[in-house]
Protein backbone atom coordinates (compact mmCIF):
# COMPACT_ATOMS: atom_id res chain seq x y z
CA UNK A 1 0.00 0.00 0.00
CA UNK A 2 2.72 2.41 1.03
CA UNK A 3 4.60 1.72 -2.17
CA UNK A 4 1.56 2.42 -4.29
CA UNK A 5 1.03 5.83 -2.73
CA UNK A 6 4.70 6.58 -3.21
CA UNK A 7 4.70 5.51 -6.84
CA UNK A 8 1.56 7.49 -7.64
CA UNK A 9 2.93 10.59 -5.96
CA UNK A 10 6.05 10.23 -8.06
CA UNK A 11 3.94 9.90 -11.20
CA UNK A 12 2.32 13.29 -10.56
CA UNK A 13 5.59 14.82 -11.65
CA UNK A 14 5.49 12.99 -14.97
CA UNK A 15 3.98 14.38 -18.17
CA UNK A 16 0.52 13.12 -17.38
CA UNK A 17 -1.78 13.21 -14.39
CA UNK A 18 -2.47 9.73 -13.01
CA UNK A 19 -5.87 8.18 -13.56
CA UNK A 20 -7.67 4.99 -12.55
CA UNK A 21 -8.88 4.54 -16.10
CA UNK A 22 -7.00 2.00 -18.20
CA UNK A 23 -5.90 2.13 -21.80
CA UNK A 24 -3.91 5.35 -21.95
CA UNK A 25 -0.77 3.64 -23.20
CA UNK A 26 -2.40 1.66 -25.97
CA UNK A 27 -4.77 4.37 -27.23
CA UNK A 28 -2.09 7.06 -27.11
CA UNK A 29 0.42 4.75 -28.77
CA UNK A 30 -2.04 3.87 -31.52
CA UNK A 31 -2.96 7.54 -32.00
CA UNK A 32 0.66 8.59 -32.37
CA UNK A 33 1.58 5.74 -34.73
CA UNK A 34 -1.50 6.23 -36.91
CA UNK A 35 -1.01 10.00 -36.98
CA UNK A 36 2.69 9.65 -37.64
CA UNK A 37 2.41 7.12 -40.46
CA UNK A 38 -0.63 8.51 -42.26
CA UNK A 39 -0.27 12.26 -41.80
CA UNK A 40 3.13 13.36 -40.53
CA UNK A 41 5.33 11.02 -42.59
CA UNK A 42 3.65 11.92 -45.92
CA UNK A 43 3.85 15.63 -45.06
CA UNK A 44 7.53 15.15 -44.25
CA UNK A 45 7.98 13.49 -47.66
CA UNK A 46 6.60 16.64 -49.28
CA UNK A 47 8.99 18.92 -47.45
CA UNK A 48 11.94 16.57 -48.06
CA UNK A 49 11.19 16.54 -51.78
CA UNK A 50 11.08 20.34 -51.86
CA UNK A 51 14.30 20.40 -49.84
CA UNK A 52 16.00 18.82 -52.87
CA UNK A 53 16.12 22.36 -54.21
CA UNK A 54 18.57 25.00 -53.07
CA UNK A 55 16.94 28.11 -51.60
CA UNK A 56 17.48 30.06 -54.83
CA UNK A 57 15.96 27.31 -56.98
CA UNK A 58 13.04 26.91 -54.60
CA UNK A 59 12.42 30.66 -54.67
CA UNK A 60 12.55 30.70 -58.48
CA UNK A 61 9.94 27.95 -58.69
CA UNK A 62 7.51 29.40 -56.15
CA UNK A 63 7.81 32.93 -57.54
CA UNK A 64 7.69 32.07 -61.25
CA UNK A 65 5.28 34.40 -63.12
CA UNK A 66 2.79 31.57 -63.72
CA UNK A 67 2.85 30.67 -60.02
CA UNK A 68 2.44 34.32 -58.98
CA UNK A 69 -0.57 34.68 -61.28
CA UNK A 70 -2.05 31.53 -59.72
CA UNK A 71 -1.52 32.85 -56.15
CA UNK A 72 -3.11 36.16 -57.14
CA UNK A 73 -6.18 34.34 -58.48
CA UNK A 74 -6.45 31.79 -55.65
CA UNK A 75 -5.97 34.30 -52.83
CA UNK A 76 -7.89 37.10 -54.53
CA UNK A 77 -10.90 34.96 -55.43
CA UNK A 78 -10.84 33.27 -51.99
CA UNK A 79 -10.83 36.71 -50.33
CA UNK A 80 -13.70 38.05 -52.44
CA UNK A 81 -15.72 34.85 -51.89
CA UNK A 82 -15.13 34.97 -48.11
CA UNK A 83 -16.08 38.68 -48.11
CA UNK A 84 -19.34 37.89 -49.95
CA UNK A 85 -20.00 35.14 -47.41
CA UNK A 86 -19.33 37.28 -44.35
CA UNK A 87 -22.07 39.69 -45.49
CA UNK A 88 -24.60 37.10 -46.66
CA UNK A 89 -23.57 34.61 -43.98
CA UNK A 90 -24.45 37.03 -41.18
CA UNK A 91 -27.68 37.86 -43.00
CA UNK A 92 -28.62 34.20 -43.45
CA UNK A 93 -27.71 33.41 -39.83
CA UNK A 94 -29.91 36.32 -38.71
CA UNK A 95 -32.84 35.22 -40.86
CA UNK A 96 -32.53 31.61 -39.62
CA UNK A 97 -32.36 32.52 -35.92
CA UNK A 98 -34.78 35.45 -35.74
CA UNK A 99 -37.57 34.86 -38.25
CA UNK A 100 -40.19 32.17 -38.70
CA UNK A 101 -41.02 31.00 -42.21
CA UNK A 102 -42.10 27.79 -43.97
CA UNK A 103 -39.47 25.07 -44.55
CA UNK A 104 -37.15 26.80 -42.09
CA UNK A 105 -35.73 23.58 -40.65
CA UNK A 106 -35.18 22.20 -44.15
CA UNK A 107 -33.41 25.33 -45.38
CA UNK A 108 -31.32 25.46 -42.20
CA UNK A 109 -30.13 21.91 -42.87
CA UNK A 110 -29.46 22.76 -46.50
CA UNK A 111 -26.86 25.34 -45.44
CA UNK A 112 -24.46 22.42 -44.84
CA UNK A 113 -24.88 21.21 -48.43
CA UNK A 114 -21.44 22.50 -49.55
CA UNK A 115 -19.89 20.31 -46.81
CA UNK A 116 -21.80 17.23 -47.93
CA UNK A 117 -21.94 17.62 -51.72
CA UNK A 118 -18.87 16.15 -53.44
CA UNK A 119 -16.86 19.01 -54.91
CA UNK A 120 -16.85 17.55 -58.42
CA UNK A 121 -20.65 17.47 -58.37
CA UNK A 122 -20.77 21.07 -57.17
CA UNK A 123 -18.30 21.99 -59.90
CA UNK A 124 -20.25 20.56 -62.81
CA UNK A 125 -23.57 21.82 -61.38
CA UNK A 126 -22.27 25.39 -61.07
CA UNK A 127 -20.67 25.18 -64.51
CA UNK A 128 -24.01 24.05 -65.98
CA UNK A 129 -25.88 26.88 -64.19
CA UNK A 130 -23.47 29.64 -65.13
CA UNK A 131 -22.58 28.51 -68.66
CA UNK A 132 -23.77 30.94 -71.36
CA UNK A 133 -26.75 28.65 -72.05
CA UNK A 134 -27.36 27.78 -68.38
CA UNK A 135 -30.24 29.00 -66.19
CA UNK A 136 -28.24 31.81 -64.58
CA UNK A 137 -25.63 32.30 -67.29
CA UNK A 138 -28.29 33.01 -69.92
CA UNK A 139 -29.72 35.78 -67.72
CA UNK A 140 -26.32 37.32 -67.03
CA UNK A 141 -24.98 37.12 -70.58
CA UNK A 142 -27.23 39.86 -72.06
CA UNK A 143 -25.97 42.11 -69.24
CA UNK A 144 -22.47 41.49 -70.50
CA UNK A 145 -21.46 39.36 -67.48
CA UNK A 146 -19.62 36.16 -68.24
CA UNK A 147 -19.13 33.90 -65.24
CA UNK A 148 -18.27 30.39 -66.44
CA UNK A 149 -14.73 29.91 -67.74
CA UNK A 150 -13.55 33.27 -66.32
CA UNK A 151 -11.97 34.26 -62.98
CA UNK A 152 -15.49 35.29 -61.91
CA UNK A 153 -16.41 31.60 -62.13
CA UNK A 154 -13.69 30.85 -59.57
CA UNK A 155 -15.30 33.39 -57.20
CA UNK A 156 -18.72 31.76 -57.68
CA UNK A 157 -17.37 28.26 -56.92
CA UNK A 158 -15.46 29.47 -53.85
CA UNK A 159 -18.52 31.38 -52.61
CA UNK A 160 -20.51 28.13 -52.78
CA UNK A 161 -17.79 26.19 -50.95
CA UNK A 162 -17.44 28.81 -48.20
CA UNK A 163 -21.15 29.44 -47.65
CA UNK A 164 -21.68 27.35 -44.48
CA UNK A 165 -18.72 28.69 -42.48
CA UNK A 166 -19.92 32.18 -41.48
CA UNK A 167 -23.53 31.00 -41.03
CA UNK A 168 -22.42 28.19 -38.71
CA UNK A 169 -20.04 30.31 -36.63
CA UNK A 170 -22.48 33.23 -36.21
CA UNK A 171 -25.69 31.23 -35.67
CA UNK A 172 -24.91 29.92 -32.14
CA UNK A 173 -23.79 33.39 -31.02
CA UNK A 174 -27.05 34.93 -32.21
CA UNK A 175 -29.01 32.17 -30.50
CA UNK A 176 -27.26 32.82 -27.19
CA UNK A 177 -27.55 36.59 -27.48
CA UNK A 178 -29.64 37.89 -24.62
CA UNK A 179 -32.76 39.70 -25.81
CA UNK A 180 -32.53 41.85 -22.69
CA UNK A 181 -29.41 43.54 -24.01
CA UNK A 182 -31.30 44.62 -27.11
CA UNK A 183 -34.27 45.72 -24.99
CA UNK A 184 -31.97 47.77 -22.80
CA UNK A 185 -30.43 49.45 -25.83
CA UNK A 186 -33.90 50.19 -27.23
CA UNK A 187 -35.20 51.52 -23.92
CA UNK A 188 -32.24 53.87 -23.77
CA UNK A 189 -33.44 55.32 -27.06
CA UNK A 190 -31.24 53.51 -29.57
CA UNK A 191 -32.82 52.94 -32.95
CA UNK A 192 -32.95 49.38 -34.27
CA UNK A 193 -30.10 50.12 -36.65
CA UNK A 194 -28.01 51.62 -33.86
CA UNK A 195 -28.75 48.62 -31.63
CA UNK A 196 -27.57 46.32 -34.37
CA UNK A 197 -24.42 48.32 -35.07
CA UNK A 198 -23.44 49.11 -31.48
CA UNK A 199 -24.78 46.10 -29.53
CA UNK A 200 -25.29 43.08 -31.76
CA UNK A 201 -22.50 43.54 -34.28
CA UNK A 202 -19.65 43.73 -31.71
CA UNK A 203 -20.87 40.46 -30.18
CA UNK A 204 -21.08 38.54 -33.45
CA UNK A 205 -17.99 40.10 -35.04
CA UNK A 206 -15.38 37.64 -33.67
CA UNK A 207 -17.49 34.69 -34.81
CA UNK A 208 -18.07 36.27 -38.21
CA UNK A 209 -14.34 36.95 -38.69
CA UNK A 210 -13.57 33.35 -37.64
CA UNK A 211 -16.06 32.14 -40.23
CA UNK A 212 -14.45 34.42 -42.81
CA UNK A 213 -11.01 32.96 -42.05
CA UNK A 214 -12.30 29.38 -42.19
CA UNK A 215 -14.02 30.04 -45.53
CA UNK A 216 -10.87 31.73 -46.87
CA UNK A 217 -8.61 28.86 -45.75
CA UNK A 218 -10.91 26.29 -47.32
CA UNK A 219 -11.20 28.29 -50.55
CA UNK A 220 -7.46 28.76 -51.03
CA UNK A 221 -6.91 25.00 -51.34
CA UNK A 222 -10.16 24.15 -53.11
CA UNK A 223 -9.84 22.20 -56.35
CA UNK A 224 -12.82 20.05 -57.39
CA UNK A 225 -15.55 22.66 -57.51
CA UNK A 226 -13.34 25.23 -59.25
CA UNK A 227 -11.74 23.44 -62.18
CA UNK A 228 -15.02 22.81 -64.01
CA UNK A 229 -16.19 26.42 -63.94
CA UNK A 230 -12.80 28.15 -64.30
CA UNK A 231 -11.33 28.42 -67.76
CA UNK A 232 -8.04 26.95 -66.44
CA UNK A 233 -5.97 29.23 -68.71
CA UNK A 234 -2.38 29.72 -67.49
CA UNK A 235 -1.78 33.25 -66.13
CA UNK A 236 -5.52 34.01 -66.29
CA UNK A 237 -7.85 31.51 -64.67
CA UNK A 238 -5.52 28.86 -63.25
CA UNK A 239 -5.71 28.26 -59.48
CA UNK A 240 -2.73 27.11 -57.40
CA UNK A 241 -3.95 23.52 -56.75
CA UNK A 242 -4.42 23.10 -60.51
CA UNK A 243 -0.86 24.31 -61.10
CA UNK A 244 0.35 21.57 -58.73
CA UNK A 245 -1.65 18.96 -60.65
CA UNK A 246 -0.23 20.21 -63.98
CA UNK A 247 3.33 20.02 -62.64
CA UNK A 248 2.67 16.45 -61.51
CA UNK A 249 1.27 15.52 -64.91
CA UNK A 250 4.48 16.88 -66.47
CA UNK A 251 6.47 14.69 -64.02
CA UNK A 252 7.91 17.84 -62.42
CA UNK A 253 7.66 16.27 -58.96
CA UNK A 254 10.05 18.71 -57.29
CA UNK A 255 8.24 21.71 -58.74
CA UNK A 256 4.94 20.31 -57.51
CA UNK A 257 6.51 19.69 -54.08
CA UNK A 258 7.87 23.26 -53.93
CA UNK A 259 4.47 24.85 -54.65
CA UNK A 260 2.81 22.28 -52.36
CA UNK A 261 5.21 23.26 -49.56
CA UNK A 262 4.41 26.94 -50.10
CA UNK A 263 0.69 26.08 -49.87
CA UNK A 264 1.31 24.01 -46.74
CA UNK A 265 3.11 26.96 -45.16
CA UNK A 266 0.15 29.22 -45.97
CA UNK A 267 -2.20 26.60 -44.48
CA UNK A 268 -0.15 26.57 -41.24
CA UNK A 269 -0.25 30.36 -40.97
CA UNK A 270 -4.01 30.38 -41.58
CA UNK A 271 -4.48 27.62 -38.99
CA UNK A 272 -2.57 29.73 -36.47
CA UNK A 273 -4.67 32.81 -37.27
CA UNK A 274 -7.89 30.79 -36.99
CA UNK A 275 -6.82 29.42 -33.60
CA UNK A 276 -6.16 32.96 -32.37
CA UNK A 277 -9.51 34.14 -33.76
CA UNK A 278 -11.32 31.28 -32.05
CA UNK A 279 -9.66 32.20 -28.77
CA UNK A 280 -10.81 35.80 -29.27
CA UNK A 281 -14.28 34.55 -30.09
CA UNK A 282 -14.40 32.37 -26.96
CA UNK A 283 -13.16 35.20 -24.76
CA UNK A 284 -15.91 37.44 -26.09
CA UNK A 285 -18.44 34.71 -25.41
CA UNK A 286 -16.94 33.92 -22.01
CA UNK A 287 -19.04 36.43 -20.11
CA UNK A 288 -22.31 35.14 -21.48
Amino acid sequence: MGRRILSSSIRTFSWRTPSVLPGFGITMGFTLVYLGLLVLLPLAALILKAAGFTWAEFWDVVTAPRALAAYRLSFGAAFIAAAINIVFGVLVAWVLTRYQFPFKRFLDGLVDLPFALPTAVAGIALAALFAPNGWIGSILLPMGIKVAYTPLGVVVALTFIGLPFVVRTVQPVLQDLDKEVEEAAASLGASRAATFRRVILPVILPAAVTGFALAFARAVGEYGSVIFIAGNLPMKSEIVPLLIVIKLEQFDYRGAAAIGTAMLFVAFVLLLIINLLQRWSRNRMGGM
Partner: peptide
Protein backbone atom coordinates in the same frame (compact mmCIF):
# COMPACT_ATOMS: atom_id res chain seq x y z
CA UNK B 1 -5.47 18.09 -31.13
CA UNK B 2 -4.03 20.60 -33.61
CA UNK B 3 -2.11 17.80 -35.34
CA UNK B 4 -5.24 15.64 -35.53
CA UNK B 5 -7.12 18.55 -37.15
CA UNK B 6 -4.26 19.28 -39.53
CA UNK B 7 -5.54 17.33 -42.59
CA UNK B 8 -8.56 19.66 -42.71
CA UNK B 9 -6.30 22.64 -43.39
CA UNK B 10 -4.33 20.96 -46.15
CA UNK B 11 -5.49 21.45 -49.75
CA UNK B 12 -6.97 18.21 -51.15
CA UNK B 13 -4.46 18.32 -53.99
CA UNK B 14 -1.56 18.53 -51.51
CA UNK B 15 -3.13 15.63 -49.57
CA UNK B 16 -2.82 13.47 -52.67
CA UNK B 17 0.57 14.92 -53.65
CA UNK B 18 2.20 13.85 -50.37
CA UNK B 19 1.43 10.18 -51.10
CA UNK B 20 2.74 10.47 -54.66
CA UNK B 21 5.96 11.92 -53.25
CA UNK B 22 6.19 9.15 -50.65
CA UNK B 23 5.16 6.08 -52.66
CA UNK B 24 5.49 7.18 -56.32
CA UNK B 25 8.25 6.01 -58.67
CA UNK B 26 10.32 9.08 -57.80
CA UNK B 27 9.19 9.02 -54.19
CA UNK B 28 11.05 8.31 -50.97
Amino acid sequence: ITLIDLPFSVSPVVSGLVYVLLFGAQGL
